[in-house]
Simulated assay, not measured.
Amino acid sequence: MSFFPGPDPLAGDKPACDAIEHLIVPRTSDIGGLQVRRALPTAKRRLVGPFIFFDRMGPALLRAGEAIDVRPHPHIGLSTVTYLFDGEIKHRDSLGTEMVIRPGDVNLMTAGRGIVHSERSPENQRGHDRSISGLQTWLALPDHKEEIDPIFSHTEERMLPHMSDDGIKARVVIGNFEGSKSPVSVFTDTIYVDLNIAPGKSAPFAAQWEERALYILSGEAIIAGDHFADNQLLVFRAGDEITVTAGPQGCHVMLFGGAALGSSRHIWWNFVSSSKERIEKAKEEWRSGRFDIVPGDEEEFVPLPEG
C-alpha cells in the first residue's frame, strides 16, 4: 500500500482549482553569474506560514574564475535555511561556526537578537567549473523568540527521513510529512519537503497546515487539470486537500508552509521584526559596528544599504 494515498485530480474540478489562492512568478536577478529567483516576499503575499523569504539559486554553472562570495552581513528576527541540490557553500558566522554545506544537508542559522555570517565557495571548489543549485529561505521567528540568543545547527542529509514508493520520492527537510518527522528543530509548526514525482504519478498535500505553498523546481505540476510550469509558486487556500500530479517529464517540487505567525512582520534588507523600531536599531548597530565579527572572515563586510 502506498504511503501517498489520494485520488488523482479530475480535469475541470473547479473546487480544487479554486484552492489556488495565488500564482506567483518570481522576479529574477543575476548575482555574480548565479541566477536567483525570489518568490517571497511579494506584493501578493508576504508570508506562507513562517516563510517570509524564498530564493531559488540556480541551477547554474560557475566557471573556473567565478565563485560565490557573499561577504559578512547581519540578520535579526529570523532563521535562515540553506538547502542545496548541487554544489557546495562554505558558511561562517559570528558564533565561530565554519561549515561546508553539501547537497541534502540542512543549514539552519537562527539570528534572534543578531548574528553575522558569510557564504562563499569553498577553497577546494575554486579554480574549476562546477554547478550550483539550491534554495535559501527565511523563517520569521514568533514574537516571543525574536530576541533569543543566536543559534546554529547543521543536519546532514543522511539524518533526514527519506520515503520512496510507487514513483514518489520525498525527503522531509523540516516538520512532519506522511508519517515521517525531520530531526530539524524550529520554533513554529512548519512543513518543508523535497518531493520528486515520476511522470503521471500523484502525491497528496494534506490540508492539516494552516498555510501551504508549492514551488515547482523542474518539470510540470498538474492540479485539478490545470498545468503549471517550473519556477512558479502556488499558494493554496486553507482547508482544501490538494493532489499534485506530474506531467510527462515528471516534476520536482518543494512543499512548504505551516502555522500563521498571528502578527505582522516588517522586513528591511536582512532584518525581520514585528517592530519597525527594532529594525531601525539594527540598522544603527550595523552602521556603527556593534554586531559581532565573523572569525576567519574579518576583512570584508556588506555595508548598510542607503535609503
Rank of each mutant, 00 (worst) to 15 (best):
G112T: 01
T97G: 11
R63L: 15
E123H: 12
L61S: 15
Q125T: 15
P122N: 13
A67I: 06
E98Y: 10
F85W: 08
F85P: 02
H117Y: 01
M57D: 03
A67S: 13
E66A: 11
R120T: 12
P103N: 09
P59H: 09
R126N: 09
E88R: 14
I115V: 15
I68F: 03
L62A: 00
D93S: 12
E98G: 12
G87N: 03
D86F: 10
V106W: 04
G77P: 04
M57E: 02
V81C: 02
D129W: 12
E119Y: 11
R120N: 12
P72W: 08
Q125R: 15
R56D: 07
V81I: 13
R113N: 11
V106C: 10
I68P: 10
R92N: 14
R56N: 04
A67V: 07
L61T: 11
L84T: 04
G114Y: 07
R92F: 04
F85D: 11
E119K: 00
S131F: 14
I89L: 13
T110A: 01
M99Y: 14
R130G: 15
G127M: 02
P74R: 01
G96D: 05
N124Q: 08
P103A: 06
R120S: 13
M109Q: 12
D86C: 04
N107E: 08
H117I: 05
S118F: 05
T137S: 15
R92G: 01
P103I: 06
G58Q: 03
S118H: 01
I115S: 05
M109P: 11
G96Y: 00
A60H: 02
S131L: 10
I68W: 01
M57S: 06
S94F: 06
Q136H: 08
D86L: 11
L62W: 06
F85S: 07
H117R: 02
Q136Y: 11
G127E: 06
E119I: 06
E123F: 05
A67H: 12
S133G: 07
I89A: 06
V100F: 06
E88F: 02
G87C: 04
T80A: 08
E123D: 15
I101R: 04
S121I: 01
G87D: 11
L95G: 07
T137Q: 13
T110Q: 10
H75N: 04
T110D: 03
R71L: 13
R130P: 00
T110G: 06
D55Q: 00
Y83L: 05
L78A: 11
P74I: 05
I89R: 11
S79A: 10
L61I: 14
R102P: 11
E119R: 00
S79W: 13
P122C: 00
L84P: 03
P59I: 12
G58H: 07
L95H: 04
L95K: 07
L84Q: 00
F54I: 08
I115P: 03
A111F: 12
I132D: 00
I76A: 07
G65K: 14
E98H: 13
D69F: 14
D69N: 14
Q136V: 04
T82S: 09
L61A: 14
P59D: 02
R102F: 08
H75Q: 07
F85V: 07
